[in-house]
Computed example of a mutant assay.
Amino acid sequence: MRPRLLLLTPWFVPGVAGGGITVSVRRMVELLEADYDIGVLTRWHAATQAAVAPDRWMPFGKNSRAAWLSPAEVWRVPRWLAAFRPDIVHVHGLYDLHFNVLPLVRRAPSPVALRVLSPHGMLDPGALAVRPLKKRLFLFAFRQTGLWRGLRFHASHAQEAAHVRRHFPKGETGIAPQIPEQPPATWTPVAAPAACGRLRLLFLGSVHPKKNLLWLLRLLQHGSVPVHLTIAGPVSEGRYASRCRAAARALSPTVRVDWRGEVPHDAVPALLADHHLLALPTLGENFGHAIFEALAHGRPVLVSTATPWRDLCARQAGFDLPLDAPQQWLEALARLWALDASAWAHWQAGAHRLATEWYGRQRFAEAYRRLFEG
């Protein structure tokens, strides 16, 4: 009999909120359902209303099931957990009251062999720098109440494991990589930036202080390269978005800004195909699904050093640069703008090769078996 694995997540398909967490959980189901009897408990909201009925188990994937809980029903997550009778509970996220906190406060009376918590980068210093007081108080309460006891923390890589141990030095930690989409065998090339008349940048992520869009807009005020910037992602912070729009209006005519809003995940490849470069000056990513997807579709990336994607220039896949050196960012844009067709083709190939080689080295199923059973 397959072990029963219950995934608890505030974000899941068919919605696009939650970004990389949504992708990771869906890919976990796809890759692990042959070995586990999987259930997913998640939130029913506006983006899912037309696609799924709330408060009932529905088939998902080949052998799994999922339940999207209505606003009234989310308070009963512990009951749903107990009724599923899981061997393993995998909690995705840290701060959500219904899907992260309640299942740990009101632990089901039925025996659960293992509880795993994936912070998904929420303990990264860059993430904690946004609204720090509120998060420090939460983590203090989490430690003092002992909610961490009996948990196995899931880190995506060694650096995230170090972040976990900084806050929970006595906690148990296991490592298993995030599971992105498999890179396509081919990608759609785009002409060199100068041949297109503008360097087409894509900011793909939520409009939130952690993603640092305002910093990017202010950087472009000082650039000399003609740029078309597309901003694709949901607005998570209204006041922050207003500041970003004001900064965009203040840009010179050499920089055009296009606000696309939230983009369905299946529309991302076409969006990438129309751009040269992903630009993401994030304060911190534990993986960076948008970064990986850009690389996988042959698009170099310009990112901060607060991601796992490093030494990009040596691979001709982009640039990873410190946020306290804005001149280096402007020089990187100028360097890409100056590439001829042949050199630009090498950079596109370098991006795709990096994603393909990384994916090929992973043994996802083995890593998650060790996380859940080791």
Score class of each variant (00 low, 15 high):
1 M>S: 09
6 L>G: 11
7 L>D: 03
8 L>H: 02
9 T>E: 04
12 F>Y: 15
16 V>W: 09
19 G>Y: 07
23 V>L: 09
23 V>F: 07
24 S>V: 12
28 M>I: 01
33 E>T: 12
41 L>Q: 10
43 R>S: 10
45 H>V: 05
45 H>P: 06
46 A>Y: 02
50 A>I: 01
53 A>K: 08
54 P>A: 07
54 P>F: 14
58 M>P: 03
60 F>V: 13
61 G>N: 04
67 A>T: 09
70 S>V: 00
70 S>F: 06
73 E>F: 06
73 E>C: 10
75 W>G: 02
87 D>C: 03
94 L>W: 02
96 D>R: 04
101 V>C: 05
103 P>R: 01
112 V>G: 08
112 V>L: 03
115 R>Q: 08
119 P>Q: 05
121 G>M: 09
126 G>T: 11
129 A>F: 06
135 K>P: 05
144 Q>S: 08
147 L>Y: 03
149 R>H: 08
152 R>N: 10
153 F>V: 13
154 H>R: 03
155 A>S: 09
161 A>V: 14
163 H>N: 07
163 H>P: 12
170 K>S: 11
174 G>T: 15
177 P>L: 10
178 Q>V: 09
178 Q>H: 00
180 P>I: 15
180 P>L: 15
184 P>C: 08
186 T>C: 07
188 T>K: 14
190 V>Q: 02
192 A>R: 11
192 A>P: 02
192 A>Y: 00
194 A>V: 15
194 A>Q: 14
195 A>G: 10
196 C>W: 00
206 S>D: 12
210 K>V: 07
210 K>E: 07
211 K>W: 09
212 N>V: 14
212 N>T: 10
213 L>P: 06
213 L>T: 05
215 W>R: 01
215 W>Q: 03
215 W>E: 07
217 L>D: 03
219 L>D: 11
219 L>Y: 13
221 Q>E: 13
225 V>T: 15
226 P>K: 02
226 P>W: 00
228 H>D: 14
229 L>T: 02
229 L>H: 11
234 P>N: 01
235 V>N: 10
235 V>R: 02
236 S>N: 03
242 S>E: 14
243 R>P: 00
248 A>F: 01
249 R>A: 14
250 A>H: 10
252 S>N: 08
252 S>M: 02
255 V>T: 12
259 W>D: 15
265 H>F: 06
267 A>R: 13
268 V>L: 05
268 V>Q: 04
268 V>A: 03
270 A>H: 07
271 L>Y: 00
273 A>W: 02
274 D>A: 15
280 L>C: 11
281 P>E: 08
287 F>W: 11
288 G>W: 05
292 F>W: 06
293 E>R: 05
294 A>D: 13
295 L>K: 03
297 H>C: 06
298 G>C: 08
301 V>W: 12
301 V>S: 04
301 V>R: 01
302 L>M: 11
303 V>Y: 11
306 A>H: 13
309 W>C: 08
310 R>C: 09
310 R>Y: 02
318 G>P: 09
322 P>H: 13
323 L>Q: 07
328 Q>F: 03
328 Q>S: 10
330 L>F: 00
332 A>G: 10
334 A>T: 00
336 L>F: 10
337 W>S: 05
339 L>C: 08
345 A>S: 15
345 A>G: 12
348 Q>T: 00
350 G>V: 11
352 H>V: 02
354 L>D: 01
357 E>F: 09
358 W>P: 04
359 Y>Q: 10
362 Q>W: 04
362 Q>D: 06
364 F>K: 12
365 A>E: 15
374 G>M: 07
